[in-house]
């Protein structure tokens, strides 16, 4: 291969590197930078959202415990009420049993 052709081929090769490869590399870097920064922003946003949800979860849990305590209290009250109701109905039952035939 003569010198001139050798230089020309090398020049073409170098031109492809300079005109395609290097700008492509820079574009690729920009795209990766954009992706990284977007993802980092989104992670920050989701982490804040998760913190809010965790607060809400803590509130809901204590609400749940309060509801369970009230549930027990209501069950006890119902028990008392039933007992009282039985006490009330007992004399009524007796009275109805002792009642003389209506005719």
């Amino acid at each position: 291969m003569d010198t001139r052709r050798q230089v020309e081929e090398w020049l073409q090769h170098s031109r492809r590197i300079v005109e395609d490869v290097l700008p492509g590399l820079l574009d690729e870097r920009d795209e990766l930078m954009r992706r990284a920064l977007n993802a980092e922003d989104e992670v920050t946003r989701l982490t804040e959202r998760a913190a809010t949800l965790r607060d809400e979860l803590a509130r809901s849990k204590s609400e749940h415990e309060a509801l369970l305590r009230r549930h027990t209290e209501i069950a006890e009250s119902m028990g008392h009420a039933m007992a009282q109701l039985t006490q009330v109905f007992e004399p009524m039952k007796r009275m109805l049993g002792e009642a003389p035939p209506s005719s």
Binding site: R29, L32, M33, R35, A36, A39, E42, V43, L46, A50
Partner: peptide, 20 residues
């Protein structure tokens, strides 16, 4: 470096999405 940072951030993102 940016490629590694993007990969790391995207993996954190999918983790954060799952947690949420």
């Amino acid at each position: 470096r940016w490629s590694a940072r993007a990969a790391e951030a995207e993996s954190q993102l999918s983790q954060a999405r799952g947690d949420l």
